[in-house]
Computed example of a mutant assay.
Amino acid sequence: MSSSDDIVIENGVMNITAVKDGLHANDYITLDGKNINITVNAQGDGIESEGYLTVDKATLNLSGGGKGLNAADYITLTSGTFDSYGYAEGGTISGGTSATLGQSSSGGGQPGGPGGNQPGGPGGRW
């Protein structure tokens, strides 16, 4: 998809194949609704915001060459399901249920993962 300043999705099913990022916003991305199901296969990041990314009540299935979720300021997962090949990178990651496969990096430890009962990852990314 093309870049936008803001993206707000409240309902729908999306299947995205992209040569760059699947969803990309310059300011923020908000996915907030009980009937959101997004599948992304992107050569870049699955979902990227140059500001913040908020996910509530969404199901995300992300695959590709970059990060699953990426936000410059922060990522907040309050509920929903996030399955990704790759990793999430952002300031605050909390809530929801996640299964992440793939990359990690060495460095400082990550606090507990979504759901609050998962151990931190091996490095700065999970």
Rank of each mutant, 00 (worst) to 15 (best):
G96P: 00
S79Y: 01
S106L: 15
G95W: 06
Y87K: 05
A72R: 15
G121L: 05
Y85H: 06
G121P: 01
E89N: 14
G91I: 06
T97N: 07
S84C: 10
E89Q: 12
N117M: 14
I75H: 02
G95A: 06
Q118W: 07
Y74T: 06
S106E: 13
G107R: 06
S105K: 09
S79N: 09
P111Y: 13
Q103W: 08
S98A: 15
G90W: 01
Y74L: 10
N117S: 14
A72H: 09
Y85S: 09
G107Y: 10
P111N: 14
G121Q: 06
T76N: 14
D83G: 03
Q103T: 07
S104N: 13
A72V: 10
G109I: 09
S84N: 04
G112P: 05
Q110D: 08
G102Y: 10
P111T: 07
Q110E: 08
L77H: 07
S106C: 12
S98Y: 06
P111G: 14
G96K: 00
F82R: 01
G102D: 03
A99W: 08
F82T: 04
S105C: 07
G113F: 08
G113T: 07
S106Y: 12
G121N: 03
T97P: 02
L101Q: 12
G96F: 05
I93Y: 09
G115T: 01
P114D: 08
T81R: 08
A88K: 00
I93H: 01
G116H: 08
P111D: 12
G121F: 05
F82G: 00
A99V: 07
S98R: 04
T100S: 12
N117L: 12
G96V: 04
G108Q: 10
G96D: 03
P119H: 09
G120N: 04
G80K: 01
G113L: 09
S94L: 13
A72Y: 09
T97I: 15
L77D: 02
A72Q: 11
D73C: 08
D83Q: 13
S79W: 03
D83Y: 11
D73A: 15
G80F: 03
A99F: 07
S98P: 04
D73K: 15
G116P: 01
G115S: 05
G80V: 03
G112K: 12
G95D: 04
T100P: 00
A72K: 15
G102P: 00
Q103P: 00
T97E: 12
S105N: 10
A99T: 08
D73T: 10
G107W: 07
S104D: 10
G90H: 02
F82L: 15
Q103S: 11
T97K: 06
G112S: 15
G107E: 08
G91Q: 14
T92A: 15
D83N: 15
